[in-house]
């Protein structure tokens, strides 16, 4: 199994970005400082529902919110594709279009796959200061679930900052 070696690690600053979210909006990571952010890179919209990572996360938003965390999905799909997927699957969190230049943000986080032009299935939990506290890359075909994210968010609270 080829491994991406350049994935950003805990302790590194999360690279800032502004990406299109929906047809008329953008989201800038640094504007979310003050609360944790979950970045979920995934290969593509429109996976079958029952085992789909994005659909699963959509069901768990209230648990993420209990940690004041914002969930952002990121793929190389364009904004129109995201919009159709959001409507079809009744998604209640933003999907960002890492579309032009293609995969720029995924590359900066070390999770772009040159071999197929998709991003890895990669998770980052970023703390309120904009520092990565947890990252995980799942095999492409494996939905990583949400237990890792929830543990990381919990650790932010308990083991995290002493400031």
């Amino acid at each position: 199994m080829s491994e991406t070696t350049s994935v950003l690690k805990p302790g590194e600053k999360a690279p800032d970005f502004t990406l299109q979210s929906g047809l008329d909006d953008t989201i800038t990571l640094s504007e979310l400082k003050g609360n944790p952010v979950i970045l979920a890179f995934y290969p593509a919209d429109w996976s079958p529902v029952c085992g789909d990572q994005i659909v699963l996360y959509n069901e768990i938003l209230s648990e993420f919110k209990a940690h004041n965390a914002t969930l952002l999905g990121v793929s190389v799909d364009g904004a129109w594709c995201h919009a159709a997927y959001v409507t079809n699957s009744n998604l209640n969190f933003p999907l960002l279009a890492d579309f032009e230049p293609k995969g720029k943000v995924a590359r900066e986080y070390g999770v772009y796959r040159d071999q197929d032009g998709l991003s890895e299935r990669a998770l980052f939990v970023i703390d309120s200061e904009g520092v990565i506290r947890w990252s995980f890359v799942s095999p492409m075909g494996t939905n990583p679930g949400a237990d890792g994210i929830l543990s990381a968010l919990k650790a932010l609270k308990t083991g995290g900052e002493t400031k």
Partner: peptide, 13 residues
């Protein structure tokens, strides 16, 4: 039930 599943690594049905 749902949350116990999430915490146990249930990732689909």
């Amino acid at each position: 039930d749902f949350l116990s599943g999430v915490k146990s690594g249930v990732n689909g049905t």
